[in-house]
């Protein structure tokens, strides 16, 4: 299994981006179904609140979604996620698994748990979505959370750049690269169709 672990603060656009990545994997790599009839792409949704919404949006697109609902914001369900992943591997053995974490989770700690206890994992990438529109607010109000989410990501997607002027985008990009200089960085707007070349480099490169 190749795992794409998505993180990023609440409202940063993770679900919109995952929809596009899922469409890319489905169209470009023909991963809709294996010959056995089992799905080759499974999405795991870790949501907060008693009512899941993101899973319904993804299911409405015909995607195979497993949900893990956390009762409170601090519950990132590390252990449950690992059990869920191992079950997916055992039952479906898909080529790709996309995991959407809650907006308050630290993706790198989840990645560590999965890497240590997960079975059948060929690769794992952490992809963090940063909110360009609220960058100033978030980096003022919750600097620790935002910086830690970004610091150890393999890929950083600065989303909603359509909400800022180009020079503001450059400033935010500089801030992010100061936090994480080694991760791949792309500035995008998931409101529109993102260039598949970006997904090719950000998602499938190296697999």
């Amino acid at each position: 299994m190749n795992i794409l672990l998505f993180g990023g603060f609440l409202g940063s656009g993770k679900t919109s981006i995952i929809l596009q990545v899922a469409r890319y994997l489905t169209a470009e790599l023909s991963v809709q179904q294996l010959d056995s009839g089992k799905p080759s792409l499974v999405i795991v949704e870790n949501e907060v609140g008693e009512t899941g919404i993101d899973d319904k949006i993804l299911k409405a697109e015909g995607l195979n979604v497993r949900e893990l609902i956390a009762g409170c914001i601090c519950c990132t369900l590390n252990a449950e996620l690992t059990v869920c992943l191992n079950k997916i591997q055992e039952e479906l053995s898909p080529e790709w698994v996309i995991i959407e974490t809650t907006g308050m989770a630290f993706p790198h700690t989840i990645a560590e748990t999965i890497t240590k206890y997960g079975k059948g994992i060929d690769s794992l990438k952490t992809i963090v979505v940063a909110d360009a529109e609220r960058w100033d607010d978030l980096s003022t109000i919750m600097p620790g959370l935002i910086e830690e989410q970004i610091a150890r990501a393999n890929v950083i997607l600065l989303n909603k750049i359509d909400c800022l002027e180009p020079e503001q985008v450059s400033q935010v990009a500089e801030d992010i690269k100061r936090i994480n200089s080694s991760g791949l960085f792309y500035a995008i707007s998931a409101h529109t169709e993102v260039n598949p070349q970006i997904w090719r480099k950000a998602v499938t490169k190296g697999e």
Binding site: L10, G11, I53, I57, G103, E133
Partner: peptide, 26 residues
């Protein structure tokens, strides 16, 4: 107050998804 997110999904014969972070509504 600070909005984490506001999400609405209407599920029926057709679907609607609305979301906001306290600014514009998608």
């Amino acid at each position: 107050y600070f909005v984490g997110h506001i999400k609405v999904f209407v599920e029926g014969q057709e679907n609607l998804w609305l979301s906001s972070t306290g600014r514009s509504i998608s």
